[in-house]
Design a binder for these strands. Sequence first.
RNA 1: GCCGGCUUAGCACAGUGGUAGUGCAGCGGUUUUGUAAACCGAAGGUCGCGGGUUCAAAUCCUGCAGCCGGCACCA
Length: 662
Amino acid sequence: MSESACAPVADRIVITFPDGKTRDYTTGVTGAEIADSIAKSLAKAAIAVKIDGVLSDLSLPIHHSATVAIVKREDPEGLELIRHDAAHIMAEAVQKLFPGTQVTIGPTVENGFYYDFFRNQPFTTEDFDAIEAEMRRIVERGSDFVREVWSREKAIAYFKDKGEHFKVELIQDLPGTEDIKIYRQGDWLDLCRGPHMANTRQIGTAFKLMKVAGAYWRGDSNKQMLTRIYATAWRTDDELKAHLHQLEEAEKRDHRKIGKEMDLFHLQEEAHGSVFWHPKGWTIWVALESYMRRRLQNDGYKEVKTPQLMDSRFWEASGHWGKYRENMFVVPDVVPNTEEGGKVFKEDPKSFMALKPMNCPAHVQIFKQGLKSYRDLPLRLAEFGCCHRNEAHGALHGIMRVRQFTQDDAHIFCREDQIQEECIKFCELTRAVYKDLGMDNFTVRLETRPEKRIGSDELWDKAEGGLKQALEKLGMPYTIAEGDGAFYGPKLAFIIRDAIGREWGCGTIQLDFNLPERLDANYIGEDGQRHRPVMLHRAVLGAIERFIGIMLENYAGKLPMWLMPVQCVVASITGDADDYARKVYGELKKQGIRAELDLRNEKINLKVREHSLQKVPALFVVGAREEADQTIAIRRLGSDAQNIVKLIEAVEALANEAKPPY
RNA sequence: GCCGGCUUAGCACAGUGGUAGUGCAGCGGUUUUGUAAACCGAAGGUCGCGGGUUCAAAUCCUGCAGCCGGCACCA
């Protein structure tokens, strides 16, 4: 580097571009000037600059030799900047239209941005047109974004004077060493880390306000409720349109809509948060559960069934009574009164029972029956356990978040040195199951020790390490959520997104060093002494309700054949073919295929339409010709082709296709 | 639980002060039909529930419940 011809001299610096070329400039040159020196067109298109990989303002003077890339709207960072800048102009627009509104924070999110405001009267979507119009005016106004650095005192005084108490709090919480950066656009300014584009005009007009929502200040439910306005923003109108179209399409695959259309389940007020499964929906459930049962049996699990309702003493022992009671359904252990108009209970309850919110304590009871030897470990107790949790009403969501749900739950009792192998086995099983189900678009999150926890750091190191090593051994990508683990142990969460991108936790494995201790579970080791087993809580699908909901959205109702409630409909063209249709139907039933017979006095067009809307994967159409030839005219969902196939072959092929993957 | 919106026939929706309408489904009839909606007819609603304002309430006010979108919480 020392002899290089382009070594900086005096007030010169060397700028290296992404293509490897270099140029030298006077120190203090800005990104804008660099762009301008390359091409006028580039200067015009430039919205920001990346200096040594760090996104910065075009106006920022560069004092050292560096790698510099000019960022344009088309670049990936461009979209982020458009959204961030749009958040600022939305805040300006809102404050102009609604004086007295306080601003708080306005970050970018996937597909757009939001801004949280404080105002006595919350906004409604009816305010959107006015806000959008004002935003467009600000864009058109073409104000430069001007970066300023203020002292803390000045910033605090300024915002205090303006009555911006939330901003004051934000500034006060910034580390003392950090400069207070202010971005100005015309007369309006905001505290902001930056960077921003050069001018409001660069935001463009491809944005749209989407929804209002309440959001707690700093995400804390004890603090004020703010009004959040969500918006989406894109580079071009076409991109915006495409996004809105995609949202519309996603709404069509909403599991609540599909559940109704396909007559799978319903929910009603009197049992809110609990699902009424209709015959077709339950057929999916049973198929999925049976599949899971075979998988578990093969992996060395023993299935059990434990009580639904247990005395409060039991929950006291497990710790749920103290820590989890507000989420539990508690039942007084008293004989109810049937006297008309009388009290519900004849006497005040002296004791209570509760519906189980989790299966783990019950499984420990099974473990504790009789002495366990180290030879019994690992002991894997599985249960399709139906749990009740009294969830916050606002949390309920279709069949994805309910108050009564069934997990494909299991608890593995093992020695510490068996943890890793069990974690690997579990992850392998989960991966295989998700693959079978076509749900391999999942992410894994490792949730580590929270601040409030039990157990030594050594133990936590071991536990987190075990999970990490399992993932790494299997080459499964994962993210880490520091501090999100349970107080009793770290966990892995297998997360799948629904149709509109919401994330749902499905599979999980949690290490637990607490409950065996608490409930005094032990086994006799090789040394003849009593030892404490480790407990792994784990579920592959998680809540089956949720998993089915997610699958319905993933497949838009067109589940794999083996899970479809109706796999085939035999439809006759005229009454003359009814007898043959019955014969075909009989053959299908003989093969265990879930078939239906449609002999209605209707045109074949109608039958095709209706069964297609019901997403029946295979339609066997039969008329006089098919009867004469002992064939079937097969029409598959999603295709209008008609395949003429011999009856025997058609039935055999379908039976083959309808087989579960395991 | 918190903020906002919504709740009209089985389903999808219209109806902003004068006591309810459309389409589809369902029911009755006609039609026997060749791959995404045959035709005709008669029905069907205490407009989520309770209270209030008014001569009059689906419509305005209010309490509650549920649902939807978020937040918080979470499988």
